[in-house]
């Protein structure tokens, strides 16, 4: 079956630490919701960044409505593992017995990648959910994922589990999840800031993520950019214009000095962005503005969401 909206069922949002992943995940959710989709925002316990940003109180591991048709879930690996064990040991009595043993507690913290696997595996169940009319209950599923450096081990969790558990039901579970992650239902959004180091990391991640054993990259977002709207970096132009518009001459030196510093900043930023564009021709790059301070994080997410419209497909 060919899905013309491929890559848009599950969106993994990642990027170097501190680039604004969580706010952007929330902003994406807002943008999709506004376009008539029914997005689900996912984060992994013990993080509660998104919960904080969208300002709700959610029960752990419970799908919680932010607004009608806009849902949030905080996936804890403990809860996911307990769910998995229950499902495997059909008889509830046995599972209760097992879950309460010391052995289980030790094993669950020792078993390689099992907890991580079932946490990622929860996405499989969420993706399967349909409403009464057979439509996707959640679309898309936006996953605030681990930062770059930890992201590749994260998407490769099922594969490393498959290497450890060479046979048996856990291997089957891992295969199932792996097939979903590598299918064209999933894609990755890499967030960067217009800084040299963040962009270098994004480029490195792009190289690492290309290849068959990873989901495809949907887009690279440059967040908090100030330079995109600035056409001229010629300080003489500003000198001339400030001469014209500043009635109060005493303001001139300080203002020109500011503009000069700002232009230095802009040039550095443009260079970093150019570096990205020089190396990327097969993935769209989207630039988002720096939002002025004074707002809470939800307002920042809301202010960013219209800029994400190029990514939003028609609601289905």
């Amino acid at each position: 079956m060919v899905d013309k909206l491929s890559g848009n069922r599950i969106l993994f949002v990642t990027g170097k630490g501190g680039v604004g992943k969580s706010i952007l995940s929330a902003a994406l959710g807002i943008a999709y919701h506004r376009a008539g989709h029914r997005p689900l925002l996912v984060e992994f316990f013990p993080d509660k960044r998104i919960e904080h940003i969208v300002n709700i109180k959610a029960e752990p591991y419970m799908e919680t409505e932010i607004q009608k048709n806009f849902t949030y879930i905080n996936i804890s690996s403990e809860a996911a593992l307990a769910e998995y064990v229950k499902r495997q040991l059909i008889l509830d009595v046995i599972s209760k017995f097992v879950l309460n043993t010391k052995f289980y507690r030790h094993f669950s913290s020792t078993a390689p990648g099992l907890k991580e696997l079932v946490a990622v595996g929860k996405l499989y169940d969420l993706e399967k959910k349909r409403d009464d009319e057979g439509r996707y209950l959640y679309d898309p599923i936006i996953v605030d994922s681990p930062q770059l450096g930890k992201f590749i081990p994260f998407v490769k969790t099922p594969q490393s589990v498959m290497n450890m558990f060479r046979i048996g039901p856990v291997k089957k579970e891992a295969e199932k999840v792996n097939n979903l992650i590598l299918s064209d239902k999933c894609s990755v959004i890499i967030i960067s800031t217009p800084e040299d180091m963040a962009i270098t990391e994004a480029l490195e991640a792009k190289v690492e993520l290309s290849g068959m054993e990873h989901p495809a990259i949907k887009t690279i977002i440059i967040n908090m950019a100030v330079s995109s709207k600035i056409d001229t970096t010629d300080i003489r132009y500003y000198e001339k214009r400030l001469n014209e518009v500043l009635d109060d001459r005493s303001l001139f030196p300080a203002t020109l000095d500011t503009v000069q510093k700002f232009i230095t900043y802009v040039k550095m930023e443009k260079r970093a962005v150019q570096e990205l564009n020089d190396h990327i021709n097969d993935v769209p790059v989207l630039t988002l503005p720096l939002i002025p301070a004074g707002e809470d994080e939800l307002s920042i997410a809301e202010a960013l969401s219209p800029h994400l419209e190029p990514l939003i497909t028609e609601a289905r």
Partner: peptide, 22 residues
């Protein structure tokens, strides 16, 4: 005997080899 049973149970639901590796 109880832990033995659990180990057996685990071997069947997680796969034998990993338990042996562990």
């Amino acid at each position: 005997r109880a832990p033995q049973k659990i180990v057996k149970l685990l071997k069947s639901y997680v796969g034998l080899e990993i338990v042996e590796d562990l």
